[in-house]
Simulated scan of single mutants.
Amino acid sequence: MRRLLVLLLTAFAVAGLATPASAAAWVRPLAQAHAHNDYEHARPLHDALDQGFTSVEADIYLVGGQLLVAHDPEDVTPERTLEALYLEPLRERVLRNFGHVYPRRTPFQLLVDLKSGAEDTYAALSRVLASPRYSFLFTTYRDGWVREKAVEVVLSGNRPRAVLSAERHRLAFYDGRIAATDDLGPGSDARLTPLVSENWTKLFSWTGAGEFPPAERARLRNVVSVAHAAGQRVRFWATPDAAGPAREAVWTELVAAGVDHINTDDLSGLAAFLRDSGR
């Protein structure tokens, strides 16, 4: 009995020494939480995962054969590669969680914004994604079929649509534009364009102050309805993101409309809002 008690106490002590990363693995995933410019946080990817985010955004430049993460070209540094900040941590996480980013199977999006030349940057990205070290992570398109894996890579920014649509096998998908009739809804194909995005201010004048104009609310819900009917997800950028009633009002409308990815730089603020909303 004494030996059993010692073993139990030892087990509890070891469990209490869990690292922050392993503790974060048990956070409840938030299906609508998207980390805009995620790489600008103190701990890229990890801060978002600690809050339960299921989508993160990384801007990349092709520099000297390396895919470097930064918002502006003057900010690139050789150690901040896509592999170091995102692919390697995701690989470790998926291996630890038996094939998933979170212990509970949850879709996860890596939105890669191509900032340098579309075709050469995509070619370099394709080689990295297809490497034996990482290829098992990614949702795959092959000969008309999509096979879902732990991470779906979607390309924004300088997107080589013609190249993507011609490929019989690829590990990346296309972020369409809501204002483009070929991207949204029945004119597109979710096997190529699973996500449609747009600048909020391009479609809506409301920024959270006062009542949401009924015509704009109807437009928002129609966009989401058309996209969902075609198997696509919806995201807006440039929504109000300063803490306060206006931001909360816009977030409330986005949640009510069923927008799939809510854009923010305030990880803890959006996480608290979604959990308080029961999302």
Rank of each mutant, 00 (worst) to 15 (best):
G65Y: 04
G65V: 10
G65Q: 05
G65M: 09
Q66L: 12
L68A: 01
V69E: 00
V69G: 10
A70K: 05
A70V: 10
A70D: 10
H71V: 10
D72E: 12
D72R: 15
D72P: 14
P73G: 11
P73R: 11
E74A: 13
E74H: 10
D75W: 13
D75H: 14
D75L: 14
V76F: 07
V76P: 00
V76Y: 02
V76I: 09
T77C: 11
T77G: 11
P78V: 04
P78I: 05
E79N: 14
R80M: 06
R80W: 08
R80A: 09
T81M: 08
T81V: 10
T81W: 04
L82Q: 04
L82D: 06
E83M: 07
E83T: 02
E83R: 06
E83G: 05
A84W: 08
A84P: 13
L85A: 05
L85H: 01
Y86G: 02
Y86C: 07
Y86E: 03
Y86L: 09
E88Q: 12
E88L: 14
P89F: 00
P89G: 01
P89R: 00
L90K: 07
R91D: 14
E92V: 14
E92L: 13
R93K: 12
R93N: 03
V94L: 02
V94S: 02
V94G: 01
V94M: 00
V94C: 02
V94T: 03
R96S: 14
N97Q: 07
N97D: 10
N97V: 06
F98H: 14
F98M: 13
G99A: 08
H100T: 05
H100R: 08
H100Q: 03
V101Y: 00
V101I: 04
V101T: 04
Y102W: 09
Y102K: 02
Y102L: 02
Y102A: 00
P103K: 04
P103R: 03
P103Y: 05
P103D: 10
R104P: 06
R104T: 11
R104L: 15
R105S: 08
R105K: 12
R105I: 05
T106Q: 09
P107M: 09
P107T: 02
P107F: 06
F108W: 03
F108Q: 02
F108G: 05
F108I: 07
F108R: 06
F108A: 11
Q109S: 15
Q109P: 15
L110S: 09
L110R: 02
L110I: 01
L111I: 07
L111G: 08
L111T: 05
V112C: 03
V112K: 03
V112I: 03
V112M: 08
D113P: 00
D113E: 12
D113V: 04
D113W: 03
L114I: 02
L114E: 05
K115V: 03
K115R: 04
S116E: 01
S116M: 08
G117M: 14
G117K: 13
G117N: 12
E119P: 15
E119R: 13
D120H: 15
T121N: 07
T121H: 11
T121V: 07
Y122R: 07
Y122A: 08
Y122F: 10
